[in-house]
Nucleic acid binder design. Structure first.
Length: 472
DNA sequence: TGATTCTTGGG
DNA sequence: CCAAGAATC
């Protein structure tokens, strides 16, 4: 039996590969365990449903079948092992405390039943145990961390997908729809369906397309939300439709074939490195999503402002680049990386709202919401993280817009009310004259809001608040 | 993976 | 007056 988790693929799946190699019939099992780790948000639940459908179809095409069960994994899996007469249960390990706890409970339960169990690595380029300081601590700064990972050389070559699976005896399972992972009334997932095709096949296609078409100009384009320059692999990676080492080897191969890709590939792989870094951080700090990594932030004077938080969530802050980002998120379940930094800085610095509020919103709305990356990067922006952005770095939303979306293409795409605004003014509508506003069809305060905080005074307020906790 | 303000040196 | 760079938040 193979227990599938955040590894919804057939290729480079060490547990599945090992099970298929035994030549015995293989039961493929996915367990929806709401009590394990952090309950998924609405957007990731939607993705999970699509990805499970794709995985089920792929397994069926090899002659096997995917069994779905709901409940505590440590109880369900031994149950299914007994029902199916499984001799062994294999899975790919997840280096996160709650998952590791379940893995060891499960191992004990299976041993009691006389069922063999085995866990395989495959979710990371390097295990946390391999990247330690002399004192045995995890690295807290990205650059030395990534250097250490690179110094280990290439990770193992990806494993092939099994060509055939011997069918196992029929086991009762849930119907996917009964899990109600997808929204029904209302069905808000239209924008997600337009934007994404979950599943392993689509993930591999996207990787190929990226390496073929976007890697060359990645360095210049990756920070430009108005261009199509990023890989958009994050949700596929989040659900393990691709493994990091598949990406690593495909990218290296592409760079070897075409040296012109090398700078882009190097930068791209370092982004994979950030994912790795965040997961290692989560391994060392299981409470990453709730606790400031820098304890002096525990007394930070956050404001509770429900109305400002709601304005931010719905993209009604009066800063076009911020609002466009949050609308893109609401519609598609994703946001361009550059804009994530801008909206996060705005929430935490201009509005002085606790980073956990923003983290929770992203957790619920992002299709790529990741237990490591999401909290680690929010902490980074807030300045309380391991390798934190300096506290005085307050993004100016107007300048960020003008620099990274110079023609306003990105803003216009997500903010139809600003469509008529000329590029010169699109990132600062509050400075437009009444005539300019009228000819763009905008009434400030009605069709588009006034800025909910003034940038200069918001910046001063943030610096004053951060000054209070500085030395602590 | 910043922004702002002040200084400097050229026109 | 302005661009470029340094200092500071």
């Amino acid at each position: 039996m193979v227990w599938f988790r955040d590894d919804l693929r057939l290729a480079d799946h060490p547990a599945l590969h090992a099970a298929a190699k035994t030549g015995a019939p293989v039961v493929c099992l996915y367990v929806l365990d709401d009590g394990l780790a952090r309950p998924p948000g609405a957007a990731t639940r939607w993705w999970l449903a699509q990805s499970l459908r794709a995985l089920g179809a792929a397994i069926a095409a090899c002659g096997g079948s995917l069994v779905l069960r709901k409940g505590p994994a440590a109880r369900i899996i031994p149950d299914v092992a007994r029902e199916s007469g499984a001799r062994a249960v294999y899975w790919n390990g997840i280096a996160q405390a709650p998952h590791q706890a379940v893995e060891s409970q499960l191992e004990a339960a299976l041993t009691k039943l006389g069922v063999d169990s085995q866990s395989f690595p495959g979710d990371l380029l390097a295990p946390p145990s391999a990247i330690r300081t002399k004192e045995g601590r995890g690295l807290r700064v990205f650059t030395p961390f990534w250097r250490r990972v690179l110094s280990l050389g290439d990770p193992a070559k990806p494993l092939p997908a099994p060509k055939q699976l011997r069918p196992a005896p029929k086991i009762a399972g849930d119907v996917l729809e009964s899990w109600r992972l997808e929204p029904a009334k209302p069905d808000w997932a239209g924008g997600l369906r337009e934007t994404w095709t979950p599943g392993e096949a689509s993930a591999r296609q996207r990787l190929r397309d990226f390496l073929r078409h976007s890697a060359r100009a990645y360095v210049g384009n990756r920070d430009r939300p108005d261009r199509d320059g990023t890989s958009r692999l994050s949700p596929h990676l989040r659900f393990g439709e691709l493994s990091p080492r598949q990406i690593w080897h495909a990218a290296r191969f592409a760079a070897d074939e075409d040296p012109a890709l090398r700078p882009g590939i190097e930068k791209f792989l370092s982004e994979l490195g950030w994912r790795e870094f965040c997961r290692h951080l989560l391994h060392d700090h299981p409470d990453l999503a709730t606790r400031n990594l820098q304890a002096n932030f525990d007394g930070f004077p956050w404001t509770r402002d429900i109305k400002a938080l709601a304005a931010w969530q719905r993209g009604r802050t009066g800063y076009p680049i911020v609002d466009a980002g949050l609308r893109q998120l609401w519609h598609t379940g994703a946001m361009h990386n550059r804009v994530r930094m801008v909206v996060a800085s705005f929430l935490v610095k201009h509005l002085l709202i606790d980073w956990r509020e923003g983290e929770a919103w992203f957790w619920d709305t992002l299709v790529d919401a990741d237990a490591g990356s999401n909290p680690a990067n929010w902490q980074w922006v807030a300045g309380c993280g391991a390798d934190a952005a300096p506290y005085f770095r307050v993004f100016n939303p107007q300048l960020q817009g003008e620099k990274f979306d110079p023609d306003g293409t990105y803003v216009r795409r997500w903010m139809p009310e600003l469509k008529q605004m000329p590029a010169k003014l699109i990132h600062r509508p509050w400075q437009a004259t009444p005539i300019e506003l009228a000819s763009a069809g905008i009434t400030l305060g009605e069709t588009y809001p006034h800025p909910i905080v003034d940038h200069a005074s918001g910046r001063e307020r943030a610096l004053a608040a951060y000054a209070k906790i500085r030395k602590g």
